[in-house]
Write a protein that binds this DNA or RNA. Sequence first.
RNA 1: GGCGGCGUAGCCAAGUGGCCUAAGGCGACGGUUUGCAAAACCGUUAUUCGGCGGUUCGAAUCCGCCCGCCGCCUCCA
Length: 465
Amino acid sequence: MRLFDTLTRETRELQPADGKTFGFYCCGPTVYGPAHIGNFRSFVLQDVLRRVLEVGGMRTKHVRNITDVDDKTICDSQAAGMPLTNFTTQWTERFHEDCRKLNCLPPHVEPSAVAHLPEQIAMIEALIEKGHAYASDDGSVYFRISSFSEYGRLARLDRQDLELGRTQNQRANADEYEKDSICDFVLWKARRREDGENFWPSPWGEGRPGWHLECSAMSLKYLGETFDMHSGGEDLKFPHHENEIAQSRCACDGQFALSWFHPTFLLVDGAKMSKSLKNLYTLDDLEKKGFTAAECRYVLVSAHYRKQLNFTFDSLHAAKEALGKLARAERELARAAGQEGAPSYKSLCGLEDFGVFAPAFVALNDDLNTAEALGQLFVGLRTATSEGGAGPNWRGLHAILAALGLILPGVAVVKAPPEAVALAEKRQEAREGKDWAAADRLRDELKELGWVVKDLREGYELEPV
RNA sequence: GGCGGCGUAGCCAAGUGGCCUAAGGCGACGGUUUGCAAAACCGUUAUUCGGCGGUUCGAAUCCGCCCGCCGCCUCCA
């Protein structure tokens, strides 16, 4: 597939450098609370990228870290009166649960930052040895950005401006830093009283790693000095990814990530999500409003990844309707093809004949155009049962759904309780006796119980309101 | 101040030089169906792409200016 590389700003064909497995690293969540739908835009799009590669027949190795030691996790675990590990474990489990609901494939490796301290310390040692880092009097270690000429390339920031503190926020925060240059960043943070029990030994004294370091150390361990792709939300470009590049390129001889994939921010009601605007939603919040994770995922893939996506409840409603339409069309196509259920994900990887849905897969392979692919999905459905073989079309449809990671709603997700079924049966009898008044009354009663009765050609169907 | 992006129908959103009198979804409206509804199904819904100029045989697509919106510049997916 072809994909835009954020570093070089070129659209290039993605090929594994080793000719076998496409290795990519994604910056994972900081586990100090539930992830919100903005976080999930990145994780879902990374998942779609992986799925498109795999459905296209490529092997992948997906590494995504868990940030379980940093300012926020330490601060919030103490506020909660819990040991750091217990605190982060609870939120890691919640993250996994949300990912499962969103139908995200688990990464092949999901390393924890706190479990990789030796690797991080080793990288700092290498950086000091090569003259790219220095220890300060208090036992912290900093990276010297003046030692890396390419610093600022990814974010397109001028290194001189950074070094001279010319950018907006640096002027305000200048006094907070005790280091040689204002923009040098911390690799190892000396132990402070407010860290409580959360400190570890190092050659520079007790302390903890800076948060940029973990991704460099763990990508090196699991993917090597040079690997195919690195991804994270656009806000991580600077400083996080810029710092990672500096660390990894200076500590090792490899090229680090060969390409970069940065999904753009999610907006809610036209504005960046924030607690103060009360537009920050978790999956749980959406579920309480009656929307499923599958519907959320549909919205998250409904726009191109390089465009800001405006998330609204109208779009969630549209997603619900669209998924229902897809599900009905799939059942019709399955009948025409004489198929039941869904083919396994594995059986769809490497599929060659997408039938009438070929244009949808072309769109996905063209810079991950998920919006175009969804459009082509519906275009294909108009002719899927009539044109060509229903069998290949049915498999092609499922391959596109698998690539997007969409789950279609089943016919009876929730079973109606016996009392609702009893009312529905009574209404059916009344209808057959043409007692319309009684039938309408029973319909109202069912509605009060929380069920809507839908009359079919033969019989009826109950759905929750 | 520096960097990046966006503006396409009521809403969401593809398309980035000719197949575009602009895909698709939602909504709305009309019809079929129905005891009536709901659901479902079928159809209609932008001669036009923020504004004004320019380049071109040809522009939503390229260039210039203007207007409006958003993001990043060391907490951030």
